[in-house]
Design a protein around this nucleic acid. Structure first.
Length: 685
DNA sequence: TTAGGGTTAG
């Protein structure tokens, strides 16, 4: 026994080794030790569970695409198709797309003849391959060649796959040539036609079917819903004599997607059958799409009262609601639930966790989830890059981007660069931002879109290169939108370029006359040069056009309850105590050297009469409430719908020092982590 | 076979 193997003597059982291969992902050294163990122990070689886990990590670690290399380094499993099928399935599920092909090639090289189970696995995963349509045609030939030409199950699978990879013609031909077309094959063809928009043909096939299963009916409901024709869907639904839970769910989802929520709720209340998890997932996800995040979470409570088990899909939606609300403790609770109930953290659920933690300002937890995932996709990388950026870790965002690039296998896309460039912008990394912007097209072949130009204008303008930003806007090949002009305007304000401000604002008001924020911007420009008449004129225009300014609103989670504070709203039951406490805080802050900056009061056209308005900005109220209702060292976390004003920013730095508490504020665009008198944004925001 | 899920510039 060599020394590597000896280190692992205490872990000789296959289960122990498997647990070593699970989380966290094994280091190269550990993988080699386990490999040595397996190679010297025949008992381990016959354990399919261990081998499949080992092989999937092996493929990932060595980035294998070539089966001879795989075979040279691996123990020979028994020559049973079942073990190979196991390996194939686990590698398809745990490593990025082309990976499982190495196992398949190795299997063929070993003269193991693929069987029905092998093809079932391949059919399930071939759509994820690069150039899937060619790959599917090859697979089709192999299935025929190996004598499965009359296997209805495999042929229907092929039909679905052809449709999924965009080859509807091949799917139709296969359907016509099928020796016998049962209900399942007919249903598959309806789904294929429907997903390619061939509704009339789908309907014709449906009506011609001698025997219809409930899925036939349901396929037609889904088909019309996908076309946004809920009336036709409802007709089928009403005609359907064998309505099952799927019929109701499909119909409810159709109404939700069309925004006809009353109809959806009516069916939801009326459905006599037991609601299943999909029913709940459908309505929870509808809440999300209508930005009713708190409602999504309360639907979950009802779901639990009704004893319906949440699934991975439920968790993804709920985590997304937490991300929007900044509800960290609920998010943590969900994460614990996922662990305790052993829900499978796949790329989607993992990504939802990463996103939730970042959007709740919990950078370490987000990174921990990311590094613990055995399979990642471009969404996960993008979430990490954007998440680091919005939390002020621009350098780390670049590092992760470079790591993604080095590893290969994950091609950065447009979203990657939005995250990367905005991260550079938040951290003031001008030359890096310029570098990656130019590499987008030059190196990665990604055409910059309006969002990328937006990031660059923000990056340049905020750093003081206002002329260069303007020049970029004037020369960019896409029509600049209000966001782009808005970034420039903000830059003008920071760098006190009143003349350009006015010009930009006029442009902005033409583009987006209904956005109250633009008028506030303009008014701020005037106020900063003390042009009170113009400020007044601006207010008049707003009144005439009926434009409203969005009120500032901050929320904070205390004891699993979300408390919302809207500026000027005194309805919170503890409003009086909070006020008294705020006055006390201010007194203490002044002793530390803080003096309120009334800049933003002058700029606030609605509240300018109130001298003490800054003291009542919603984030200060939320922070005060957080301080009086919690003990200990846990950071105070506040989510604000607008950007933090400069006075609140200054005051919060002092508050963090005074109370020795970390205060994390998520504003409209980014995070501020206040610690001991400083902010992570380095006052650059 | 049919229903439900994730990242994106100010």
């Amino acid at each position: 026994m060599n020394s590597c193997a000896r280190n692992f003597q205490s872990f000789l059982s296959p289960d122990h080794l498997v647990s070593h291969l699970l989380s966290p992902p094994p280091t190269l050294k550990k993988l080699q030790q386990i490999q040595a163990q397996i190679l010297t122990n025949p008992r381990l070689q016959s354990n399919p569970n261990l081998l499949s886990h080992f092989i999937s990590h092996f493929i990932q670690t060595y980035n294998l695409s070539n089966s001879s290399l795989l075979l040279r380094h691996l123990p020979k499993p028994h020559h049973q198709p079942s073990i190979w099928n196991h390996l194939l399935r686990s590698s398809a599920e745990s490593s990025p797309p082309p990976g499982f092909l190495s196992v398949y090639r190795a299997m063929l090289q070993e003269n193991i003849s693929p069987d029905r189970a092998t093809f079932t696995t391949l059919l399930r995963h071939f759509s994820a391959l690069p150039n899937p349509s060619d790959a599917v045609a090859t697979l089709h030939c192999q299935i025929i060649k190996l004598g499965h030409a009359s296997d209805r199950f495999l042929l229907t699978g092929l039909l679905n796959l052809y449709s999924k990879v965009g080859c509807l013609n091949a799917a139709e031909q296969l359907f016509v040539e099928m020796p016998e077309r049962d209900v399942i094959a007919n249903n598959a063809m309806i789904a294929a036609l429907s997903s390619h928009g061939r509704i009339i043909d789908a309907r014709r096939l449906f009506e011609s079917m001698p025997e219809k299963s409930s899925a036939s009916w349901n396929s037609m409901i889904t088909c019309y819903c996908k076309q946004n024709d809920v009336r036709a869907a409802r007709e089928i639904f009403d005609r359907n004599p064998i309505k099952d839970v799927v019929s109701w769910n499909a119909m409810i989802d159709g109404y939700c997607k069309m925004g006809q929520l009353e109809m959806a709720w009516e069916l939801f209340d009326r459905m006599g059958l037991a609601k299943n998890s999909v029913t709940w997932n459908t309505v929870i996800s509808a809440c999300l799409h209508h930005r009713e995040f708190a409602m999504a979470l309360s639907m979950f409570q009802v779901m639990q009262v009704e004893n319906v088990r949440p699934t991975e899909v439920t968790m993804v939606s709920l985590l997304s609601a937490c991300a929007h609300l900044g509800a960290l403790s609920m998010g943590r609770w969900l994460h614990a639930y996922i662990r305790n109930h052993r829900l499978k953290i796949d790329v989607v659920l993992g990504n939802a966790l990463i996103d939730m933690y970042f959007k709740c300002g919990s950078v370490e937890a987000a990174l921990q989830v990311f590094h613990g995932m055995s399979m990642k996709n471009v969404f996960c990388w993008n979430s990490v890059i954007a998440g680091l950026g919005m939390n002020g870790y621009g350098e780390q965002a670049i590092e992760i981007f470079l790591e993604m690039d080095r590893r290969g296998g994950f091609k950065p896309d447009g979203v990657t660069f939005v995250g990367l460039l905005s991260g550079c912008s938040h951290s003031g990394l001008v030359s890096e931002g310029k570098k990656y912007f130019s590499r987008m097209l030059g190196v990665y072949g990604i055409q910059p879109e309006i969002e990328h130009y937006g990031c660059m204008v923000d990056l340049l303008g905020r750093a003081g290169y206002v002329e260069e930003a303007l020049n970029l806007i004037e020369t960019m090949p896409i029509q600049p939108n209000s966001v782009v002009w808005g970034s420039l305007l903000r830059a003008c304000r920071i760098h006190k370029d009143a003349k350009l401000s006015e010009r930009v604002t006029q442009r902005l008001l033409e583009l987006d006359p209904d956005d109250g924020a633009n008028y506030v911007f303009l008014s701020n420009v005037y106020a900063s040069s003390k042009r009170w008449d113009d400020v007044e004129r601006c207010r008049q225009i707003m009144i005439e056009r009926g434009v409203q300014k969005v009120p500032g609103c901050s929320s904070i989670e205390v004891n699993n309850m979300i408390h919302e504070f809207v500026v000027g709203d005194a309805s919170h039951p503890q409003f009086e105590q909070i006020n008294t406490f705020l006055v006390e805080i201010e007194r203490e802050l002044r002793k530390l050297g803080y003096s309120p900056s009334t800049d933003s009061v002058l700029h606030d056209i609605e509240d300018e009469e109130k001298e003490n308005a800054v003291m009542y900005h919603s984030e200060k109220i939320a922070i005060a409430f957080g301080l009086m209702s919690t003990r200990g060292k846990e950071p105070i976390r506040v989510v604000k719908n607008l950007r933090v004003c400069s006075d609140c920013h200054e005051a919060t730095k002092f508050i963090a020092k005074l109370f020795q508490r970390e205060i994390i504020v998520r504003d409209r665009n980014r995070f501020h982590h206040f610690r001991d008198g400083t902010c992570s944004c380095k006052d650059y925001w």
